[in-house]
């Protein structure tokens, strides 16, 4: 088997691919922050809400974490037009990703919400602290130690998961890789270059998150 690897065509398309990487990161950011907002509400409701709400959130989380994000998006993508709602593929994908990540983030943040209560008890024992000081010196450190590492990991998972958007025609990194490879017919070369780009951006993301955690929250997360 003789196959001559030829990276020239792919490298020419590097700026186009890197632009796609930016789109991937944007998708991950939207899914992360919108999901975290919903997830925070979910976590608070799951811990402090009335019984029926707790049950409903529990069912939501169980359903979304036990079915594939891809099929969830397929469902939206094909069923919404049926119900008379017409959205662009990107919007559809984003809605699906946010609903999905909200479920996982509810679980992650719930651990934080639960730990607040324990931290408050500890704070009650230490006297002479104002409400603000308690939040600043007791609760915040407690909660960040609890959730920082899982949140960082989940962000990386979202960056990798955003590649799924390609299957709906969104031109993020993997989508652009498909575009490039169908014109240059150098699939292996194209996708190996794209793999390296994913490795680099997730590595930079892990590194920055670890450094941010160390600097801002004194969380010593593993980089590797």
């Amino acid at each position: 088997m003789n196959y001559d690897f030829d990276y020239a065509d792919v490298l020419q398309q590097l700026p186009y691919l890197l632009g796609g990487a930016l789109v991937s990161l944007q998708i991950a950011f939207v899914a992360f922050f919108a999901g975290a907002l919903l997830g925070l509400g979910g976590a608070l409701g799951r811990v402090h809400g009335p019984r029926p709400l707790q049950r409903a959130i529990g069912a939501y989380v169980t359903f979304f974490t036990n079915t594939p994000a891809l099929v969830q998006v397929f469902f939206l993508y094909y069923a919404l037009p049926d119900a008379g709602v017409l959205l662009s593929p990107l919007t559809c994908v984003l809605i699906g990703f946010v609903l999905n990540s909200a479920a996982y983030l509810t679980e992650i943040l719930r651990a934080g919400v639960v730990s607040v209560r324990r931290a408050e008890l500890e704070a009650a024992a230490t006297l002479n602290m104002s409400r603000l000081q308690i939040v600043r010196h007791v609760i915040l450190p407690h909660v960040t130690r609890m959730i920082y590492a899982p949140l960082s990991n989940f962000f990386i998972i979202l960056v990798l998961g955003s590649s799924m958007a390609a299957l709906f025609g969104v031109e993020e990194l993997t989508g652009r890789a498909i575009n490039v490879s169908t014109t240059n017919l150098r699939t292996i070369e194209t996708f190996s270059v794209v793999a390296v780009i994913y490795i680099l951006i997730t590595f930079v993301a892990s590194l920055s998150l670890a450094l941010l955690g160390r600097w801002a929250f004194r969380v010593h997360a593993r980089i590797f």
Binding site: L160, G161, M164, A177, F191, A195, I199, T202, F224
Partner: peptide
């Protein structure tokens, strides 16, 4: 470290 940083979809293609 490499394979944990590549999307499964990309691995499938390669």
């Amino acid at each position: 470290e490499t394979f944990r940083r590549i999307p499964f979809l990309v691995i499938l293609f390669v």
